[in-house]
C-alpha cells in the first residue's frame, strides 16, 4: 500500500465514527447515557469525554494484548479492562470536580455497560493494530460526545433557557420543561434521527439518479 492510501485509510477510520457510523445517530448504541444525562450541556460533555477516554484507552490496551488473550476468555478480559478504565475515570472526575460527579451520579459507573465500548473492543480493537484502534476509539468517542452535545444543547436551551449554565433569555423566559424531563430526550433524539435519515435518504436518491444518468448515457454511446 502506498503512503497516501494508508493515510486516507486512517482518516477513514477516524471519520466514520463522526458521521457514517455515528454510534448514536446511526448505530443507536449506548442509549442509556444518551437519554439520561443529556439534560444539560455540561453533563453531556463530561459524559462524552469520559466515554471517549475510556473507549480510547481500552481500545489501546485490548489491541496491544490482542495476540495474548485467548478467544475463550476474551469477553471477560475486555470487561475487566473496561471496568478498570471506568473506575479510573470515576476517580478522576471526582477529583476534578465534586459537583459534576454528583450531577452525573451512577451514570459514570454505568459506562462499563455502554455497548459502544465492548462493541468496538470486539469488532475493531481485537483484530486491528494499535494505531488504528486508537484512531477508531477517538473517532467513535468524538462522535458520541458530539451527539451528546447536540442533544444536551437543544434540551438545555429549550428546557431551561440556558447554555452550559449561562442564562440566555432572561428571567421572563417560559421554558419547555418537558425537554429536560426524560420524555424530552426521546423527542429530541427522535427529531435528530428524522433529520439524519432525511439527509441520508436524499443523498441516496441523488446517487441513484446520478447512476441512472450515467447508465443511460453509457447505453446511448455504445
Amino acid at each position: 500500500m502506498s503512503e497516501e492510501r494508508i493515510q486516507s485509510e486512517k482518516m477513514e477510520i477516524f471519520l466514520k465514527g463522526l458521521w457514517k457510523d455515528n454510534p448514536v445517530f446511526v448505530m443507536l448504541l449506548g442509549m442509556c447515557p444518551v437519554l439520561a444525562v443529556t439534560n444539560s450541556v455540561i453533563n453531556a460533555v463530561v459524559m462524552g469525554v469520559a466515554t471517549l477516554a475510556v473507549l480510547t484507552l481500552s481500545n489501546l490496551l485490548i489491541s496491544s494484548l490482542r495476540k495474548l488473550i485467548p478467544g475463550q476468555v476474551r469477553i471477560a478480559t475486555y470487561i475487566l479492562i473496561i471496568a478498570t478504565f471506568v473506575t479510573v475515570a470515576d476517580y478522576a472526575i471526582k477529583a476534578a470536580s465534586l459537583e459534576v460527579h454528583k450531577a452525573l451520579g451512577a451514570f459514570i459507573s454505568l459506562i462499563v455497560v455502554n455497548c459502544i465500548i465492548l462493541g468496538r473492543a470486539e469488532a475493531f480493537a481485537s483484530k486491528n493494530s494499535i494505531g488504528k484502534s486508537v484512531l477508531d476509539g477517538l473517532g467513535m468517542g468524538l462522535g458520541f460526545t458530539l451527539a451528546l452535545l447536540l442533544l444536551g444543547s437543544v434540551r438545555e436551551i429549550l428546557g431551561n433557557g440556558s447554555f452550559a449554565g449561562i442564562d440566555l433569555f432572561g428571567p421572563n423566559f417560559q421554558p419547555l420543561t418537558l425537554m429536560i424531563l426524560p420524555g424530552g430526550a426521546f423527542f429530541v433524539l427522535g427529531s435528530y434521527l428524522l433529520l439524519f435519515n432525511w439527509f441520508k435518504h436524499r443523498k441516496e436518491k441523488e446517487q441513484r439518479e446520478l447512476e441512472a444518468v450515467t447508465f443511460y448515457t453509457g447505453e446511448a454511446t455504445r
Partner: peptide
C-alpha cells in the same frame, strides 16, 4: 492471561486511587 490482565487492572486502579 486473565491473571495478568487482572494484575495490570489492579495496579492501575490502586495507583489512581492513591493518587486521587
Amino acid at each position: 492471561a486473565m491473571g495478568s490482565v487482572g494484575f495490570i487492572a489492579g495496579i492501575l486502579i490502586v495507583f489512581t486511587f492513591q493518587f486521587t
